[in-house]
Design a protein around this nucleic acid. Structure first.
Lengths: 233, 233
DNA sequence: TTGGTATATTGGTTGAACCAATAACAATAA
DNA sequence: TTATTGTTATTGGTTCAACCAATATACCAA
């Protein structure tokens, strides 16, 4: 009904603006930014506010700040991280479809393998977690995220757990489009039951197959949607 | 010969300290931190300095800062990102081997697929890049990073490019151990030539196979090393 | 050419004050 | 009593002004 409005503080806006200039190519890697005092004045914010934004940009791999020297633009293709990719997804609407495609592709490569591993490593704790989620009254999208998280935790690969956080973050925002379709909802609900069963049974091959199938299905649906709604995301 | 010393500013030290407390479990998810004014006083730093650290921690997915309310610890297993994983790798020595194992496992799953894709998509630009790197006078580890980057760029999956940044960041620090061994150097040098040839030739199957072989080889070597030197990393 | 020295530039840190959102509580009305 | 509204205290957000510390630069001396 009502949708939450997200409040940004000033430093986040400053950060967004600079991110935008970098990924748009207005600011070139290697280039030096004007001194903090000058930038903050031009953007009409306090130097501290700017500095908080700079800290964020630094941790996104976009800038390198050196005392006594200055602020340098880094090449984000060499030093950017997944957090930055999120920003690209949101800020550069013209790239959204392409980035999304890449994300789905890698998910298709990784997640089935991790599902298999989960089935071979799952503990009683994981089994209980599956049952709790399936019986819970969460929304479908919440269940979906939870199921994938249990699989990741059962698989016991911390890198995958973190990469999955990235996937989930994105699907939280874009998943509504997918789950608007009745057929997709059915497929997902069925998937939850089947993958849980396979993992609980310790059947790695089945788990891998089931995960692969649902991902291929979703990928096809989403790509199809992206093609037909190029810029309505 | 000489190795660069890395200087940390105060806010980074503050951040490290807080990160440590969170991943050590001293600070529990959901818990509320004392007010900024109080924390900064206890840590004997200015509030601004603390705030810069908080911005970093926020972007690592560790904290949630809410105006008028307070600062809450998030569950990093649900919201942490790869940048945080790096910190875990460096700060929690007892977990280093486990995390490394996970990283190598996922690399084995992803990179061969991306090598195949690179071979099928490579452009003249990529071909030239290969030749330049092979002919350059970079160190072996620099060449290795460069080769993988070219493959990632040729494969044209931006998510993989960013995940590779993560891999490379880590191997920059830990790769020395691997490249100390003469045999490993030889294997890597040979790998560079062969993978370049395969990708340039557009031979996807070979590229995948070659990438897989070198990764399996390296993984075995590294895991072996980790087992025998459990805490000397 | 090399190494030192003084100076200017630039990021790092501090302190104090005030703004703005939120929570907690009290007062009020149904 | 219960739900709503208004008030106050708490807490993060922002600004200003000043000074510290690292670096670059230009210049000088050996």
């Amino acid at each position: 009904m009502f949708t939450e409005i997200s409040k940004k503080n000033l430093s986040d806006e400053v950060a967004s603006q600079i991110i935008n200039r970098i990924i748009s190519g207005i600011l070139i890697p290697g280039e030096k930014l004007p001194p903090e005092r000058e930038v903050s004045e031009k953007m009409n914010v306090n130097r501290h506010t700017l500095r908080e934004a700079l800290r964020k940009l630094e941790s996104l791999g976009l800038l390198s700040v050196r005392q006594g020297d200055g602020i340098y633009i880094k090449d984000y293709r060499d030093s950017g991280n997944l957090e930055l990719l999120k920003h690209i997804l949101y800020l550069k609407k013209d790239k959204t479809a392409d980035v999304f495609k890449d994300i789905l592709e890698l998910r298709r490569i990784i997640s089935p393998e991790m599902a298999e591993k989960a089935a071979l490593n799952r503990t009683d704790y994981d089994i209980e977690a599956f049952q709790q989620v399936l019986a819970s009254d969460k929304t479908l999208i919440e269940k979906d995220i939870a199921i994938h998280q249990i699989i990741a935790k059962a698989g016991n690969n911390i890198l995958y757990i973190f990469i999955l956080n990235f996937f989930n973050d994105i699907f939280k925002d874009f998943g509504q489009l997918y789950f608007k379709i009745e057929e997709n909802k059915k497929v997902t609900a069925k998937f939850h039951v089947e993958i849980s069963k396979a993992v609980i049974a310790g059947d790695g091959k089945s788990a891998k197959k089931i995960m692969n199938e649902v991902i291929v299905y979703a990928e096809k649906k989403i790509l199809n949607y992206l093609e037909n709604n190029n810029d309505k995301i």
